[in-house]
Amino acid sequence: MTVIETQGLTKRYGSVQAPALADLTIEVGDGVTGLVGANGAGKSTLIKLLLGLLAPTSGSATVLGHDIGRAGEQIRRAVGYMPEHDCLPPDMRCIDFVVHMGRMSGLPPAPARERAADVLRHVGLAEERYRLMGGYSTGMKQRAKLAQALVHDPELVMLDEPTNGLDPAARDDMLALVQRIGHDFGIPVLVTSHLLGELERISDHVVVLDGGQLLRSEATRTFLADTGTVLVEVTGEGDAQRRMGEALAARGLTCRPQGSLIEIDPLTVDGPSSGDDPVAAADGQDAAAAAHDRLRDLVRDTAADLDLGLVRIQARTGRLEDVFRDEVPA
């Protein structure tokens, strides 16, 4: 199900030259969607636009089927929002605060109390819920912020940098929690971070922004998918690795040593490889699969010709970091 849809969404602050968000067209569905980008990429701007808190300079968007320009109130009733900055009154007990925020989202008194206790248990603040939040650690504050975003049982949550300021252990806990919200609780999540690595683990889909521009919007498995590159290890007399490499090169393959392995680039695929047209994309995938098989056959034949033992042929999977390495000139 599509929960967020944007069409050429653009936001320019005042008369600043470069827009904070430029002509963004994306779709966000169920599960966890990671919104990745460096500082100033436009992540928070996008969330504020989607909540109807900022008016777009141009373009349009719908959240849960509501237009951001006309139905801000309905959107804010149905969405839970966790801002990136501090937003907790220090002189309130966490439980009172979460109950109050539930009421502000339209829960009657009794359900607000019940659900506040529930969500505080889910975020792991059951023990500390009667303490004033002024004395909370950063980790506890982030949990309290998350609890207030969940208390009214939203149909979608937008979490702006929930791992901000957390140590590695607390970061892992928070990410696991975000993943549970998206998968076990069944609430679609839009979560931002400037760290690619942490979102690739928990997201089903990743949107990458750079300087307000859309870099990529893809299912995470595409990122982690077989890149077509193959790693090969051989054994044999003499300098097996070098002999194998030369033979592969002689057969027209591009390869290079990678430690004790040889990394071989995929065979070039003829035909369309554009992702826009589904038919062409499917054709492209078939062609890629065929090229893949051909490459493995070639490796096997080469090793057999040289009388070398083939220890392994393994696909090299891409990582999210490659997105930036490939597309952002550093």
Partner: peptide
């Protein structure tokens, strides 16, 4: 209090 602690952004993100 609302403006200083930042709670205002939670209120404004509500109906």
């Amino acid at each position: 209090r609302d403006l200083r602690s930042g709670v205002i952004s939670l209120y404004l993100a509500r109906p």
